[in-house]
Amino acid sequence: MTLVTDTAVKALVHSTTTTQVRARYEGSNICTWIGFKHVNYLVEEAVLDHFRQAGLPARALYETHGLGLDLVSIDSRILHAFHMDDVADAEVEPWTKDGDATLGFRVTIRFERDGAIHKAVTAKVRVSLRIDTYLEAAGEVPAALARYAVATLGDDLEREPATAAPAEDEILASLTAGQNAYAWKWNIPYPYCHFTERIQMSGYLRLMEEGKDRFVADRGISIKTLLDDRRWIPVVPRSDIRILDEALMEEDLYTVYTVEEVFKDFTYTSRMDFYVLRDGNLVKTATGRIVHGYAVIENRRDWSLVNFDQRVVDAIEGKAS
């Protein structure tokens, strides 16, 4: 039996869909605002529902055709803050072009507040269909989806060559040498993975959030420090992440958080690179960027953006106070 009909694939790559989304309670960590990670989860859910509405849900693609639905790229801008209990409409518009090896979608999320409709999030997403090799083969990939199917995530890209790794106890130092960076080693647990083998997009989003937390703590301006000192909270107007290769369950993942630019004492951009050690080489499995600013909590409902002071700038730039 096949799910993949001409009608279903046509709907997937040509039709626009809309679905209601609501952020999870877990994402409200400070007052009632929803963090960037959970906003990106809304983008992911909208894309998954687009597949459902086309008649090609992720579960059935895997169980029937052995195709794992993997979001391999999310580039999102947050234009208005989500609050706990906000219900939004997420519109998914296909933007797959002729010759593309991935399925592309534009996602726009809007909500109503105080009688006005606000465009809260815009995002671009790329999806690959990963051919399952953990279990027995499921047969031929349906012809209509074959161009989007890959044996390994990142096969659609021209990958960076792997580099010979130094001794394991020197890897973190080698990855941060001469950079305004922080790095750590971490063993990938199964809750960050899917389809039995590999870390999934939501896992990388969690690591991007953790990278900020680790970096500012290392620089003496931890999240709680600035909350207690001045009621400042980090805000993220933009983030992007691209999976380049696969990182597997229980592999050691080396994550590098590098500050690239401080813009007018108002935001700073950090790059995040992820590597695994494989056959004596460092293999880059993902890369992304995250833009951070700070806001001051005015009351239980409102916050406003603030400029960095010298203490924060020095910490971000790695200068001794």
Results as ranks from 00 to 15, higher is better:
D6K: 14
K10Q: 15
T17I: 11
T18C: 07
T19E: 06
Q20L: 12
R22E: 15
E26A: 15
I34P: 05
H38A: 11
V39C: 05
E44Q: 13
E45R: 04
L48F: 14
Q53V: 06
A54H: 09
L61F: 05
H65D: 15
L67E: 00
V87E: 10
V87C: 09
A88W: 07
A88Q: 13
D89N: 13
E93T: 15
G99S: 08
G99M: 01
F105G: 00
R106Y: 09
I109E: 10
I117P: 04
H118C: 15
K119T: 14
A123M: 09
R126N: 02
R126G: 05
S128H: 01
L129H: 00
D132I: 02
A137I: 00
A137W: 01
A144D: 01
A146F: 10
V150S: 02
A151E: 12
E160S: 14
A164D: 05
P166N: 04
E170H: 12
A173Y: 02
S174L: 00
N180P: 11
A181P: 02
Y190W: 05
H194V: 03
F195K: 00
R198K: 08
I199A: 03
Q200H: 09
Q200F: 02
Q200N: 10
G203Y: 06
L205T: 02
R206T: 10
M208T: 07
E209R: 08
E210V: 15
G211V: 09
R214V: 03
V216W: 04
G220E: 08
G220K: 03
I223H: 08
T225Y: 12
W232M: 06
P234N: 05
V235A: 08
V236I: 04
P237R: 13
P237A: 11
L244E: 11
D245C: 05
D245R: 00
D252E: 14
Y254Q: 07
V256F: 12
E261N: 08
V262D: 04
D265Y: 01
D265M: 03
F266Q: 13
R271V: 10
D273F: 04
G280N: 12
T285N: 03
T287R: 10
I290L: 05
I290G: 05
E298R: 08
E298L: 12
N299R: 01
L305Q: 13
V306Q: 12
F308Y: 14
D309G: 07
V312A: 02
A315C: 04
K319F: 03
K319M: 01
